[in-house]
Design a protein around this nucleic acid. Structure first.
Lengths: 218, 218
DNA sequence: AGGATTTTGTTCTCACGTTCACAAGCTCTT
DNA sequence: AAGAGCTTGTGAACGTGAGAACAAAATCCT
């Protein structure tokens, strides 16, 4: 489930507060979800809670971390070292969550050889050997949209099986390769759309099929 | 719907290719969705296609842009000018999609007064006047997690009604305020989770309730 | 002009995810 | 030791979204 990392973060926050035990209500509140949903999610992992008591924070945290594969560090390569790629390279949130930026790759000769966040930028030609050498399974695409599909193809053929795509383009990959897409401008456009509807419907107060759509926070 | 911006991008790509008419099949392929879903989504906007022919690319593009509120430019303020905030400020994808970075705000005295991507960084104290002056409805939080809730409160009280939150924290806001969350490390953790399951189940080929989960691309 | 063909708009069905509600089980008090 | 009080785990209803299938409509060909 895609919510496991959220729970993990909430649990880590509880650990930092020195809390050693929590109920599903507490944890659900911290994670911003429904308690029943939380319990059902956790029940898929196994019965790690005790009825009448709640969950042992540290123990549950470890179990989720294990389920997420966070007992090991995952080496990741970032392709595209523009503004966004650089920001990602320097992002501190990764290292504490089992993600290690093992390599940076770019096609711009100006950037190749420079050092970003302690890692030297390698040329695209080295991609395959880098992936093989580090045993990299996960890659990040932070290139312009036009380059994304080509980069994805190269990544897949080098052996990468999971891709996080920040480029504004739809990339298609063979079956068995996981792709997640984060599109910064689309997120803002969605918010602009809400604002648009808000200002358009404020006078009329019309109904329309748009009224309830679940994205407006509670 | 959250897919409208995706359709808009696909349509823009078609315009660039000089294509003036397209069927729901073509557009759905370009957007990476099911044709039936696409038609259903578009039908909510109105009947902008002609049966037996398809959609007029330029006309449909305008209609979606209008629905998204992209006929006007939306002024946005970014709070937190670290690596990520700077990268967002410099992101070129915004301006072509009706998003204008009108102001940057940070609490670090070192950063206040510096210029990033052509905009001078303002102190937090100026937030309210900035929002009021530009009529800003949409804000981006790119601060560390600890600061996120405080910033969100300040934004809401200044009059912002839509927030895009990049900080690794759950922010709660009053009803009527829209929040979208983008969490970079969670995206990678989800991919790591897929890899974890892949390597864990590769030998056993076990079933489990996790087998089908729709996030692995086709 | 009339039918064949194509493609939209819509209805219907289905499956998934979410939520409610309750039984099972643990702890603490008396 | 037995019951009262919580809290988990799960079975059942609910609502929502996705996909298939079909009818309406426009064009093209004969």
């Amino acid at each position: 489930m895609a919510r496991l990392p959220v729970y993990l973060r909430a649990l880590t926050a509880l650990v930092d507060q020195g809390i050693s035990t929590c109920s599903s209500n507490d944890l659900a509140a911290a994670a911003g979800v429904n308690p029943a949903k939380l319990r059902k999610d956790l029940s898929y992992l196994g019965s790690y809670g005790t009825r009448g008591v709640g969950y042992d924070v540290e123990y549950l945290r470890y179990q989720i971390a294990r389920e997420l594969g966070q007992t090991q560090d995952w080496d990741v390569v970032i392709v595209g070292v523009g503004h966004l790629g650089s920001a990602l390279s320097a992002y501190r949130g990764f290292s504490t969550r089992g993600i290690r930026i093992a390599a940076l790759v770019d096609s711009d000769p100006e950037r190749i050889g420079t050092e970003v966040a302690g890692v030297t930028v390698a040329p695209m030609a080295d991609l395959e050997s880098i992936v093989r050498e580090h045993g990299i399974a996960i890659a990040v695409i932070a290139t312009p949209g036009e380059a994304a599909q080509g980069v994805a193809d190269a990544l897949v053929s080098a052996g990468v099986t999971s891709i996080l795509n920040f480029a504004p383009a739809i990339v298609t990959v063979p079956e068995g390769v996981a792709v997640r897409k984060v599109d910064l401008s689309i997120e803002l456009q969605i918010l602009a759309y809400h604002e648009q509807r808000r200002s358009a419907e404020a006078p009329g107060g019309g109904a329309g099929p748009w009224a309830a759509d679940g994205e407006v926070s509670l």
